[in-house]
């Protein structure tokens, strides 16, 4: 089943004088359960593509369909609802809420979904166990390592059982060993939970483990290869 489809996706940034084409006519189809790595040099349009797919930004032209629905026409609150229910985000700098504990950070999306407290606690413990970070539950983000914070970010992203997880350079701030372990965790989530991953990265060990590798250059797809 197609989960993401883009049609002639184009994004042009303009400051009134200079125009920068970040994406040009990108046509892409991603199936459910795929483990996609989008690679390319800096400025190739990886993050822009991810932002368009995640409904964080609007394209200049073209369409993005998530599970068949055109998200480019949605209003801000509809997009927020969509992100809450269907999309999980993992950022380069983890971006946990510093005043909340690990378990509260993971719980937050469930609160926004209006899930009852007891059910929330059960789901949080389950996900923390799955990611092997249950002993960190009551720690604040600044009390744990970068690798642990990124695991928490993954836990926060998968807690709502989204259809798709978008990760932007998730290993950029981690050493290669921790980064490798993190990619393994994501592959595990992909295989066990059937969650679709789209990961932007230029980290060789991430690219090496891609299920499908899309290479971008100058805002266009240079290569699209299915590996497993």
């Amino acid at each position: 089943m197609t989960i993401i489809k883009t049609e002639n996706l184009t994004k042009i940034y303009s400051d009134g004088k200079v125009e920068v084409v970040a994406l040009r006519d990108v046509n892409l189809e991603i199936m459910q359960g795929e483990f996609v790595v989008v690679a390319g040099p800096s400025g190739s349009g990886k993050t822009t593509l991810l932002n368009q797919i995640g409904g964080l930004d609007k394209p200049t032209e073209g369409r993005v369909y998530l599970e068949g629905k055109d998200i480019t026409q949605m209003k801000k609150d509809e997009l927020a609802e969509l992100r809450l229910r269907k999309i999980g985000f993992i950022f380069q700098t983890y971006n946990l809420i510093p005043v909340l504990t690990v378990s509260e950070n993971v719980e937050l999306p469930l609160v926004l979904l209006g899930i009852p407290e007891r059910q929330r606690k059960e789901q949080v413990m389950e996900v923390l166990n799955l990611l092997d970070i249950s002993e960190l539950a009551n720690k604040k983000p600044n009390e744990i390592s970068g690798g642990q914070q990124q695991r928490v970010a993954i836990a926060r992203a998968i807690i709502t059982r989204p259809s798709i997880i978008l990760a932007d350079e998730p290993t950029a701030h981690l050493d290669s060993k921790t980064g490798g372990m993190l990619i393994d965790v994501m592959i595990k989530m992909n295989r066990e939970k059937g969650i679709t991953f789209i990961i932007c990265s230029h980290d060789p060990q991430v690219i090496q483990k891609a299920g499908r590798l899309i290479r971008l250059r100058d805002g266009m797809i240079e290569d699209d290869k299915k590996i497993w």
Partner: peptide, 16 residues
């Protein structure tokens, strides 16, 4: 600012 961006990205609505 960054935190609000994250909250919005994970689906927190403007009213919240």
């Amino acid at each position: 600012v960054r935190e609000f961006g994250v909250l919005k990205a994970i689906g927190m609505k403007n009213k919240n």
